[in-house]
Design a protein around this nucleic acid. Sequence first.
DNA 1: CGGGAAGTTGAAGAGCGTCAAAAGTAGTGG
DNA 2: CCACTACTTTTGACGCTCTTCAACTTCCCG
Lengths: 245, 245
Amino acid sequence: MPRYNIVPGAVPRAGGAGESPCAACTIREIAVCGALQSGELRALTDIMDGISVSPGDVIFYEGDPARYVFNVAAGTIRLSRLLPDGRRQITGFLFPGDFLGLAYDETYTYSAEAIETAQLCRFSRAQFETLLDGHPRMERRLLGMASNELATAQDQMVLLGRKTAREKLASFLLMLSRRAERRGQRADPVRVPMTRTDIGDYLGLTIETVSRTFTAMRKSGLIELQPEHAVRLLDFEELTAIADG
Amino acid sequence: MPRYNIVPGAVPRAGGAGESPCAACTIREIAVCGALQSGELRALTDIMDGISVSPGDVIFYEGDPARYVFNVAAGTIRLSRLLPDGRRQITGFLFPGDFLGLAYDETYTYSAEAIETAQLCRFSRAQFETLLDGHPRMERRLLGMASNELATAQDQMVLLGRKTAREKLASFLLMLSRRAERRGQRADPVRVPMTRTDIGDYLGLTIETVSRTFTAMRKSGLIELQPEHAVRLLDFEELTAIADG
DNA sequence: CGGGAAGTTGAAGAGCGTCAAAAGTAGTGG
DNA sequence: CCACTACTTTTGACGCTCTTCAACTTCCCG
């Protein structure tokens, strides 16, 4: 299984010679980097590498020493944990603007793999922590992001522990839709870049149940399955009602 | 449903007149407060109220404005979320040394209730954040605790999404045992202060399944159900093997 | 085109939930 | 001290949702 390529300074595209490439970054405002003034971006760029990953590439494995933290600049990442017998739980999907590497403890506690071609900003963890020392606003932002992730994790626990297959899938589609909207993409024909296997492993279901539930929702007029992994949400209200129980 | 009583300076017991009550706190080392030098404790005490809660008392409800953060000094707390139809998911249990209030977003995203009589150190969120500004080591510690909580949340997702009832219960008992040990209590006859309902709502099971699974584990010689909600772990190795899949 | 992966559909079965009732436990007051 | 009540836990019978196993179809990329 291939890992990633290091493409120094390639992500995102650099502007002028002395200017930080982050200045042109479209998702900076929703990422950690948004906590920095444009004048401070230099400090960030100096310790950054651009990383390019192809679908299926592993960014790091559960158990690897946690040497880096990342920012997702483009693409989709899945985070997962394995049980010894191969059962898998996907603990989250990351999209542009998301931070990767928060939950560490010397080693990573989960694996990170690319679902779609992705661009990442990579920082050595040690250097990144040093940077935080000098930029308390950034550290506060990171704490806020961790706090948000915890709230998301709790949502997911409710979903996994107490929702039916139908409710799980409705919640999933709405989550994708809302997150796309937050990144400035259209919310309705929502792109679903992950496979049925990924969806099942995220929702605590089998691929067959995911497929059957998609079909049932299509037949009852809730959604429309379009080409290229797009899903139209035909009845937003009803979907929300289903998702919330 | 009663809420809590404010007992200024009562938690934990104060030592001398000018001395911070925290100086005598037995769980300080494992709490956020451990990041402070003993000389800095005064700053913490100044913005602190002691809170006393009885079993069943609500510390705050999901949706309440997030005005305070807390430290658990004694007792057991459960965090939970409700679906509109009453289905409940317990997202975590808190024990002495745990921090309460991390995942906020103007309002609390979960409810916190006492299972056993508990003592809490309460801080106004605004004052606490001001305190953090002046104590970067404490903020870093908080980030580390958030990071740990995220890892724990991911464990719980694996449990909820991919484990069987038997595996869930084994994981639960071992978790209680390990956390008791970390607080310096004995790990083997582990105290289980929560009801079957709480356990079920934590593990994504019904009380009947929890009860049946306890019985099955008892009959196969894995555990022994003792009086006063104590459980002896008769075969640690086997329990671990079951818990890990 | 062709081959492999991804997705769909069907039939049968298991694990856990639901409903119901009994047994145990704890707190209260005469 | 014991009866009374209310709650928690256990146990049983049955049913349903989701899983498992299997075959088939569709999609995609060289």
